[in-house]
Simulated scan of single mutants.
Amino acid sequence: MSTRSTSPEKWALCVVRCCLHLPQLFSTCVAFSLVTDMGIGKGAIGNWSLCLWGFCFTVTLITSITELCKVQSCFPFFWNNFPVTYACYAALVCLSVSIIYSVTYIQFLPYGPHRDRAIAATAFSCIASVLYATEVACTWNGYKIMNTTCYVLTMPGLLKVLETFMAGVIFAFLSNTSLYLHQPALEWCVAVYSICFILAAVTTLLNLVEWEHRLPVKAVITMLSVLLYISALVLWPLYQFNEEFGGQPQRSSDWDCRDELTYDMCTWDQRLAVAILTAINLLAYVADLGYWARQVSVGTEDQPRDS
């Protein structure tokens, strides 16, 4: 890492982060408290949202205390990378919770106190997402001023964040094992999601600790992930929505979706969600592969030179 920054510049960035951490803590805490106050009326989606808001609040609090106490050196990861990486994930997490919670839960709630609390919690979750995104933008600008390199604030770094995040959302839907068990083709899709997630996560972690590796390794890993995701994009919809392979082409054919009193996503909706997320993540991997292909063609990739 190369840094040519002065102490005032570092201090200014730290102050900006701390000023953003306070409203982030407030927003996630309020969203968590509002849904918790709903009691048994919060539903399974509410419990899932509570876990994510609580996680964001906890990590933001730990990050704030670490920076205020100036004990960053006690952590194994390079601190210039960790806060902005977490902020990227937190922005995506809060945004996804806001969307999923409103689409799959709030719209089915009857008018009343529970619905009002759920709407307010979603609003604060959206605010938290904007605040985390603002922290990423401020850090990006600050690092440019200080001439500080950061893997996450590069095109491949941002794509890796998106790839691992989308895989995490897919895993949340796959917690319903009835979607794929006893069907080898669908179990293969789950294996694809797991393998690609591990490869992307390991690549991200190695780059966060500034482990240098050559371009062919990155290109091969990305190419492998693209091929695996193509197979999943073909097999998952084929075996989930084609009657010839035991799928259900119509939403009305799923008995879970006929129950209008339930506040949770029915099985058919979960199948569709995984298919859409698979397509989105495949596009991210294709963009990642395109980036590395361009790096090869123009020869701009920095590689260790033999002396």
Rank of each mutant, 00 (worst) to 15 (best):
T148Q: 13
M146P: 03
L159H: 03
Y151A: 02
K144H: 13
L131C: 06
L162A: 11
L159E: 01
S125H: 02
F124K: 00
L159S: 01
M155I: 13
G142E: 06
V136K: 09
I127R: 05
T149C: 10
L162G: 06
N147G: 09
T148L: 11
E135Q: 15
T164A: 10
T154N: 03
A123C: 11
W140T: 09
A128W: 06
I145S: 10
A137I: 15
K144R: 15
T148D: 08
S129Q: 03
C138M: 14
C150I: 05
W140S: 15
I145C: 01
F124I: 06
E135V: 01
I145M: 09
T164Y: 05
C150R: 02
Y143E: 05
T148K: 13
G157R: 01
C138Y: 11
L131N: 09
V161Q: 09
V152L: 06
E163R: 10
F124C: 04
L153N: 03
W140H: 15
N141S: 15
A123E: 08
F124V: 04
Y132E: 10
L162R: 08
L162M: 10
C150K: 03
E135W: 00
T139P: 08
A128P: 02
M155S: 11
F124L: 08
E163I: 12
M155A: 12
P156R: 04
T134V: 09
T148W: 05
V152M: 07
Y143N: 08
T139W: 04
Y151G: 06
T164F: 00
G142T: 05
Y151H: 10
C126N: 10
V136Q: 08
N141I: 13
Y132V: 00
V130C: 14
K160E: 11
S129A: 15
G142K: 07
N147L: 10
E135N: 14
Y132G: 02
W140A: 12
T148C: 11
T164K: 06
A123F: 15
L131G: 00
L153D: 04
L162C: 11
A133S: 14
A128T: 01
N147C: 12
V161I: 14
